[in-house]
Design a protein around this nucleic acid. Structure first.
Lengths: 117, 117
DNA sequence: ATCAACCATAGACTATACTCTATGGTTGAT
DNA sequence: ATCAACCATAGAGTATAGTCTATGGTTGAT
């Protein structure tokens, strides 16, 4: 598919997809048989990557961190051991963040109780 | 206390405190009896506000959102009802975020399982 | 052939949240 | 009196993550 279809499928704008591509999070392929244009083609893996990026961003990861997750996911130069280590660290980061969110929730709840009294 | 002590007590730099003050999140007071300088003085409420800002930032709130929380907390022009409403919305936002974090955790866990197999 | 709708690159612009520099005045210990 | 260590404002600079504009080429339906 071309970039416009990828954008429509994922809800990410064409501009932002290009930005992610420059950043190294996804990569389109040129068809070497076609010389009349230099259009980039995207496959289902690109869709999956963009969906992962969206989820990871919602979870508060930076693009840098998302890049690390994507590398652990797709990059074959990592050993299984290395991949596991990277991803387990990300899970730890998520657990820490959940803890912080719960703490903040408690702070606000305490304030609510103070208001009620 | 002066800004330097506030910085030391909270771990927030003098520069960042001034930035937050310009942003409207905290406010120092000038002593009208002293005319030789224009030093700003900060009290314990400022310490509490900065600690709240740190916690809220860790939870992923923007400064804009933190301003809303602080207003609900300290601003007396809001009714109890209004304060409650604002803070309950923030708790809802935290719950939503926790859900997103758990979802991301599941995604990474699934990936880890795939690697293991 | 033409024209809307697409494709590409390059680079300028924006918002958020700092972070730092420049400049100049004040305080307090020696 | 002097000098390090503070205080203030103003404004420039940085990093992250987009977002938009300019420019020019391609495709496909009419």
């Amino acid at each position: 598919m071309l970039i416009n279809e990828l954008a429509k499928r994922t809800g990410v704008t064409v501009h932002t997809i290009r930005f992610y591509e420059r950043y190294g999070l996804i990569r389109g392929q040129r068809n070497p048989d076609v010389t009349s244009n230099n259009y980039l083609h995207y496959d289902d893996e690109c869709v999956a990557r963009l969906e992962l990026i969206l989820d990871a961003k919602s979870a508060g990861f930076t693009l840098q961190e998302i890049g690390e997750i994507i590398d652990a996911w797709y990059k074959d130069t990592y050993t299984k051991r290395e991949k596991r280590q990277i991803l387990e660290r990300k899970i730890q980061a998520l657990d820490d963040k959940i803890k912080e969110l719960r703490q903040m929730k408690k702070i606000i709840k305490d304030c609510l109780e103070e208001i009620a009294s």
